[in-house]
Amino acid sequence: MSLLEVNHLKKIYTARYGGNSVQALADVNFTIENGEYTAIMGESGSGKTTLLNIIATLDRPTSGTVRLEGQELSTIPERRLAEFRRKNLGFVFQDFNLLDTFSIRDNILLPLVLDRMDLREMDRRLKMLSEQLGLGELLDHYPYEVSGGQKQRAAVARALITNPRLILADEPSGALDSKSTETLLRIFEGINRQGQTILMVTHSTRAASHAGRVLFIKDGIVYHQLYRGNLTVDQFYQKIVDTLTLITTGGRTNA
């Protein structure tokens, strides 16, 4: 069984009082296997953020299904959604979403505190992640005292600390400089090699070139996909650039 299955997903937004309707997703179909690192690319308005929000249970589809390890997400009661996200999904956002009144330590531990986890287990997980992500000297600092790259590493630690089935990353490098971006992308590759499944929405060709597969969204459907295979990051980067050019100009794409 695939980890994530998206079948015939459709989303239509209708304005109040019978206004115009906007179709964000038309018929989206794809699967994600355990341990995959997949990027989603597309022009603004292509539906990729809507797709991510539905997978994150932050929005509901008009029709179609999303299943995580066989569980259809639309059947989860509203009162259980927050718990479901904490236990199954890790989130990394462009704007970090850290609480300025909490230390880096407390921001990372927050999902475990909400689940009332044993303190010893919380400390064990925090120690392991802070060493892995180079956060040991920053744990007692506050978000406003550290750099954007350090904030994003803290956000990655917060996403990982629950041992999620799936990491959802929304433009994770969008607010970072080039050096911090490369550090983040190396971290993503590292945690993926350890078996973590990642689904990332990005405009950045450089970010997408670090993934193992890229899905291209156009007009509310998965228009094309590329597999990295044995290509280097630079080779995959060029292949993505060429594909984006063909999609934009209406040319034919080849797998």
Rank of each mutant, 00 (worst) to 15 (best):
G251V: 03
I12G: 06
E189N: 13
N97K: 15
T183K: 10
G35N: 12
P143Q: 04
L99M: 13
F84A: 05
F96Y: 15
E69N: 13
V22G: 09
F102A: 02
P143K: 00
R125E: 04
L98G: 07
L114S: 06
A211C: 12
I191R: 05
K10Y: 10
I161C: 11
Y237T: 12
E171D: 04
K151R: 15
A56G: 15
R67H: 11
Q132S: 08
T50M: 09
S2K: 11
Y237H: 15
S2E: 05
V6G: 10
A157K: 08
D106F: 08
L3T: 13
I54G: 03
D115K: 14
E182R: 11
M200S: 04
T253H: 04
F188N: 01
T49A: 00
N53I: 02
I217L: 15
P77C: 08
G174A: 15
L126T: 00
A207V: 09
L110P: 04
G149T: 01
D170H: 04
G229L: 09
P111G: 01
V222S: 00
K48C: 02
G190L: 03
H210Q: 01
V22C: 06
G174N: 13
T50A: 10
G19P: 00
R206N: 13
I191K: 03
T202C: 09
K151Y: 10
F84Q: 08
G64R: 01
I247Y: 10
T183P: 09
Y142K: 15
I240S: 07
E137W: 06
Y144L: 08
N20W: 03
L73N: 02
V28W: 05
R16S: 14
Y227W: 09
K218R: 14
K179R: 15
L244R: 12
L246W: 03
V6K: 04
D118K: 10
D95Y: 12
E43H: 09
Q132C: 01
D177H: 04
S2V: 02
I108M: 01
S147P: 12
Y144T: 07
F216A: 06
T31I: 13
D100W: 08
D118C: 08
D100M: 05
N34R: 14
E83Y: 13
T38F: 02
T181M: 01
Q225C: 11
T248N: 10
L110Y: 11
E131T: 09
G19N: 02
L68E: 03
Y237Q: 12
R60G: 00
F216S: 06
F30N: 08
N107M: 10
S21V: 05
G90H: 05
G134H: 07
T205M: 14
V146W: 12
I161S: 03
H8T: 12
S130A: 15
L98V: 04
T38N: 01
E36A: 01
R80W: 09
I161V: 12
I247T: 12
Q150S: 10
